[in-house]
């Protein structure tokens, strides 16, 4: 993860359609699955950074045949096998965006990992993939989290399906010599998509420990909160974050960046905390998208116009802040929290 110059709004110039095979499909908790996809085909997968995402096909990648009128030959008495995949097995038409939760390069090439929650026909299809099955995806897409020059401390705040990019970010920050602490929020223990270190549980009083394997492997302590108190501290993720920030000195805060991804109310609350204590905060936004490539104009987010670059406002929020539509897919998904106009 290179220290890019200030914010971040570059479109990756090397995106493409990649084919891959499922190497791991592991259920992490009640609804969440980890997919490791081994990239096949001749093209090298471009470099990636935390915050970037892929548009994963949730259907047979051989789309040219999925709607093919096949000639079925059969003998009397036989049941003809139907091969109109689309009619036999409901699958999603559009791709689905997933943040990278990891990436590895080895002698066999490149793999990428995503973690998804089964919420519909597309993710249900993904959850049933077997090792060796073919998928395809478009990527890498979107901009990236950045390391601000002069800073070296990170607070990673992830909630629900916003957690996966934090795993990738923890790895990249560790490689860059940053310190990090993770704050993980879940509605309930069954929906916490992490691996818990054997013999160690998240503290119920919100004290950081090394119970989450994905962070502990980079020596990063973590705090878990759950809405119902079934794991870690009962409360919101900001309830775990606040005491840690309060203990920090002004000097420490000035060396710190908060990185957050999760449900919008959570990110909004994290943003308010960051502003209250004068800590830089980068948010990874999500919005329903069709293409992920900047053409369908679906995944709009409201961002303060960059007047220095001649951008004009398209509207004003109830709090009186000017905003302009940006695309989560190509202008984001990562934005400086101060520029996000919430609600």
């Amino acid at each position: 993860m290179n220290a890019l110059p200030s914010p971040v709004h570059d479109v990756t110039p090397t995106r493409d359609l990649f084919e891959a095979r499922v190497e791991v499909n592991r259920r992490m908790c009640r609804d969440h699955y980890l997919l490791r996809l081994r990239i096949t085909g001749p093209r090298d997968f471009p470099t990636t950074q935390p915050g970037q995402f892929i548009q994963l096909g949730c259907a047979n990648p051989d789309r040219a045949s999925r709607d093919t009128r096949e000639e079925v030959t059969w003998q009397p008495g036989e049941v003809p096998a139907l091969h109109q995949d689309e009619l036999c097995h409901p699958s999603a038409f559009l791709r689905r965006p997933f943040s990278l939760s990891g990436r590895g390069d080895d002698v066999l090439g490149t793999w990428v990992e995503v973690i998804h929650r089964v919420v519909g026909v597309g993710t249900d299809w993904l959850s049933k993939l077997r090792v060796g099955d073919a998928v395809d995806f478009v990527g890498p897409l979107g901009n990236t989290f950045t390391r601000t020059p002069g800073k070296n401390n990170a607070l990673l705040v992830g909630g629900g399906v916003g957690l996966p990019p934090m795993f990738y970010l923890a790895e990249a920050l560790d490689a860059a010599g940053w310190k990090a602490m993770a704050f993980v929020g879940a509605t309930t223990s069954e929906l916490l998509a992490v691996s818990i270190e054997e013999g160690l549980v998240p503290e119920s009083d919100g004290r950081p420990n090394r119970s989450i394997v994905q962070f502990a492997s980079y020596s990063d302590p973590s705090v878990v909160t759950s809405d119902d108190g079934t794991i870690g501290m009962k409360g919101r993720v900001t309830d775990g974050l606040l005491p840690v920030i309060e203990k920090m000195s002004g000097a420490e805060r000035s060396k710190t960046v908060i990185y957050t991804c999760g449900p919008e109310p959570m990110m909004h609350a994290v943003t308010k905390l960051a502003e209250r204590f004068g800590i830089e905060c980068q948010v990874c936004l999500e919005q329903a998208m069709a293409c992920g490539m900047g053409t369908c104009q679906s995944c709009i987010v409201k961002i303060e116009p960059d007047t220095a670059r001649g951008e004009v406002a398209q509207g004003r929020s109830v709090e009186g802040r000017d905003w302009r539509y940006k695309l989560a897919c190509t202008d984001g998904p990562v934005f400086d929290s101060r520029r996000v106009v919430w609600g």
């Binding site: 409901p90 919005q287 329903a288 069709a290 369908c296 104009q297 679906s298 709009i300 539509y325």
Partner: peptide
């Protein structure tokens, strides 16, 4: 500027 979100939804 176009409509507010959500702007798309997938159906069968």
């Amino acid at each position: 500027k176009g409509n507010e979100a959500y702007r798309i939804v997938e159906t069968r």
